[in-house]
């Protein structure tokens, strides 16, 4: 259930949290994380000079039962990181520890043995589904691979019960992706990912391109699954309101780097980029027009990477050192990590 909680403090993050969730336990230091990446690099053009990394020296852990938000500019490597964690992409370098096992270099067959424990919810676009597959086959396919003992009717039963949980009736079994709206497809995508009871789920923009009512239903659904089955999520989104509602911690990426990890979605951001991101949130109140002023310099080269700190060419507070050395992600207390040369909140 989504209940609006009173705004807690002057956090720059809009909205309210979903109540009744367990206290954040997902800090990498507390307990064993379900998945952890260490020194992860990914380059799509390994021969290009200079080397361009979609993901660069990334260290991040998702705790058991935790919902970790991942925000950042489009093209900053969020989706790539999600796919790397699930080994739908092969990392160029680095470790991916899933339940303690390094899966970074496993082959196709070895990965099949653990695929059912980790799933991805793809964006609800038409491309996410085989156009010749009905909903029953789409959701039932993972079952065919992992619930081999089950008969067709048993599998259909499981699909129907999960469909009901995502709010679609059994009449959707025979539908094809082209016959459904974006919101319906999104829910089918969720059902496909959850049918195997995964321990870790990557939600890639699961609530973009659906309207507000549908968004709330989907968030509620994800929260329910977490509560009932204790799975963990990496929640990739650019919708800060949704991130604020559902996530325990929030990681912020910029140009392939992790620049900040907030211990709570409503903690005030420290990194100038996170501040810019929060400031760009648009209020649905026309009187507040102009409040969402950009807190970054425009006119920087998009897609190119400056020397030193990746944000240095757009940052309002860039100093001399920012153009020379890349800041490391350091602990700023309270479980907050930030990669910035600035000592404190500017």
């Amino acid at each position: 259930m989504i209940v609006q909680a009173p705004q807690s403090g002057p956090g720059l993050w809009p909205g309210s949290q979903i109540t009744g969730k367990p206290q954040p336990t997902g800090k990498s230091q507390a307990g064993e994380p379900i998945i952890e990446v260490k020194g992860l690099y990914k380059s799509f053009a390994p021969k290009a000079k200079p080397l361009i990394y979609a993901v660069r020296d990334l260290n991040l852990a998702v705790g058991r039962g935790e919902i970790l938000g991942l925000v950042g500019e489009s093209g900053c490597g969020k989706t790539t990181l999600g796919k790397l964690m699930l080994r739908l992409e092969r990392p160029t370098q680095g470790q991916i520890l899933f339940g303690g096992q390094d899966i970074a270099t496993l082959g196709f067959t070895a990965l099949r043995a653990i695929r059912h424990r980790m799933q991805m919810i793809f964006q609800g676009t038409a491309n996410a589904f085989n156009p010749y597959y009905s909903v029953n086959r789409i959701i039932g396919e993972p079952l065919e691979n992992y619930a081999r003992g089950a008969s067709f009717s048993e599998r259909t039963e499981m699909v129907v019960s999960l469909l009901a949980q995502v709010g679609l009736g059994p009449e959707y079994l025979g539908r094809y992706p082209s016959e459904m709206s974006g919101g319906q497809r999104q829910r089918v995508g969720i059902a496909r990912a959850l049918i195997l009871n995964p321990e870790f789920v990557v939600c890639d923009e699961s609530v973009s391109s659906v309207d507000h009512a549908a968004k709330d239903r989907i968030l509620e659904l994800l929260a329910n699954f977490r509560r009932e089955r204790g799975c963990s999520y990496l929640f990739i989104s650019h919708d800060l309101a949704s991130v604020a509602k559902i996530c325990d911690r929030v990681a912020v990426m910029y140009l392939g780097n992790l620049v900040e990890v907030l211990p709570r979605p409503d903690s005030p951001p420290l990194h100038p980029y996170t501040q810019a991101l929060a400031a760009a949130f648009l209020s649905p109140d026309p009187r507040r027009r102009g409040n969402g002023k950009a807190l970054f310099k425009d006119g920087a080269e998009i897609g190119t990477r400056p020397a030193g700190c990746p944000f240095s060419d757009r940052c309002l507070y860039a100093m001399g050192i920012c153009h020379k050395a890349q800041p490391l992600l350091t602990d700023r207390g309270d479980g907050r990590l930030a990669a910035c040369h600035l000592e404190s909140n500017p």
Binding site: K83, L88, M118
Partner: peptide, 25 residues
Amino acid sequence: KEFVLAAESGGSSRLSIIVRHIAPN
């Protein structure tokens, strides 16, 4: 396309991905 990745993520074998997802398309 993402549905091919989704099939891989759902644990389908290479042969099944080729025969069921790529070939018809």
